[in-house]
């Protein structure tokens, strides 16, 4: 048996337990860990010490560029590229550009939000190593509350980490290894 350990997995009794466990794992200095629960838990972000997503700034930049771009594009088409008098209004009738500029800003921001979110959370992917654990696969969408610490965390040492999770109240602790079939 020289299989590579991918992560350590521990199960906790209920959402409150999971919340406290997350705090302790964070305080221990682990960086690459995650909590799994069938439903969102209030205060989990704080407990895990999650930073705010940088997505807002990315979308902000896209929004500014697209609103200015669309405004300029409309001005260019109607005043420079193909000058055409419409309902007796001046060629550069900026009043009319607001609506489309706004709409394009919303559209591009929404698209960038979705794509950016996918990139940041690592989707799409077809499989996650944690699902090698049978216990995890069965319970995580039903009534299981898990903490996982990944092997590429700088502090990770399989046996020590296992003991640590035990000391903070984790049950059914297992080392996640690839299945035999793979």
């Amino acid at each position: 048996m020289s299989e590579k350990v991918l992560a350590v997995l521990a199960e906790f009794k209920d959402p409150a337990d999971l919340l406290h466990a997350a705090e302790k794992v964070k305080d221990q200095g682990f960086k690459k860990f995650d909590c799994h629960s069938p439903f969102p838990i209030h205060g989990m972000d704080d407990a895990m010490g999650e930073k705010r997503s940088p997505l807002g700034y990315v979308v902000g930049v896209v929004a500014v560029i697209s609103v200015i771009g669309m405004f300029a594009f409309q001005g260019w088409t109607s005043a420079i590229d193909y000058p055409l008098v419409l309902s007796g209004k001046p060629l550069f009738s900026y009043q009319a550009y607001g609506v489309a500029s706004w709409a394009v800003m919303v559209l591009l921001s929404a698209i960038v939000t979705v794509i950016g979110m996918m990139v940041l959370i690592g989707l799409p992917r077809f499989h996650h190593p944690l699902f090698y654990s049978e216990n995890f696969s069965k319970k995580v969408n039903d009534d299981g509350f898990f903490v996982s610490i990944e092997a590429d965390d700088p502090q990770f040492e399989a046996e020590k980490t296992k003991k640590f999770l035990e000391s903070i109240g984790g049950k059914n602790i297992e080392l996640v290894v690839p299945n035999e079939e793979d």
């Binding site: 309902s87 007796g88 209004k89 009043q95 009319a96 607001g98 609506v99």
Partner: peptide, 9 residues
């Protein structure tokens, strides 16, 4: 309000 009034003129 402004836009409709401006447009209809």
């Amino acid at each position: 309000q402004y836009f409709l009034i401006w447009y209809a003129n």
